[in-house]
Amino acid sequence: SISSRVKSKRIQLGLNQAELAQKVGTTQQSIEQLENGKTKRPRFLPELASALGVSVDWLLN
């Protein structure tokens, strides 16, 4: 799922939720909701993929 991929990649990069949120241009709460499965397809998906160094396709599939 996107939530597990985001969380595992974030941890692999040594980032906390607030640091990832800053790179993406969103809030820590938005990252938390995404990782908890409350958000399925965030509006900041391209920025998120870029910050994590992955493709949008990788996040979604």
Rank of each mutant, 00 (worst) to 15 (best):
S1A: 10
S1R: 09
S1T: 14
I2R: 03
I2C: 08
S3V: 05
S4R: 11
S4N: 11
S4K: 10
R5E: 02
R5H: 03
R5L: 08
V6Q: 00
K7V: 10
K7T: 09
S8M: 15
K9G: 04
K9I: 11
R10F: 00
I11H: 09
I11N: 08
Q12N: 07
Q12C: 10
Q12A: 13
Q12D: 08
Q12I: 08
L13K: 06
L13N: 05
L13I: 07
L13W: 05
L13T: 03
G14Q: 07
N16W: 03
N16Q: 09
Q17E: 09
A18F: 13
E19P: 00
L20F: 04
A21P: 02
A21N: 02
A21T: 01
Q22L: 13
Q22T: 10
K23Q: 10
K23G: 04
G25N: 08
T26Q: 09
T26L: 08
T26K: 05
T27C: 07
T27A: 06
T27K: 07
T27D: 11
Q28A: 12
Q28N: 07
I31Y: 02
I31E: 00
I31S: 01
I31C: 03
E32W: 12
Q33C: 11
Q33S: 14
L34V: 13
E35Q: 02
E35H: 01
E35S: 02
N36M: 12
N36Y: 07
K38L: 15
K38P: 07
K38T: 15
K40G: 11
P42V: 14
R43N: 13
R43H: 13
R43Q: 12
L45F: 06
P46R: 15
P46E: 12
E47V: 08
E47I: 08
A49R: 00
A49Q: 01
A49C: 05
S50V: 13
S50R: 12
S50K: 14
S50I: 14
A51W: 05
A51S: 07
L52Q: 00
L52C: 02
G53F: 06
V54F: 03
S55G: 08
S55W: 04
V56T: 09
V56A: 08
V56Y: 07
D57H: 12
D57L: 10
D57Y: 13
W58H: 03
L59N: 00
L59P: 04
L60M: 11
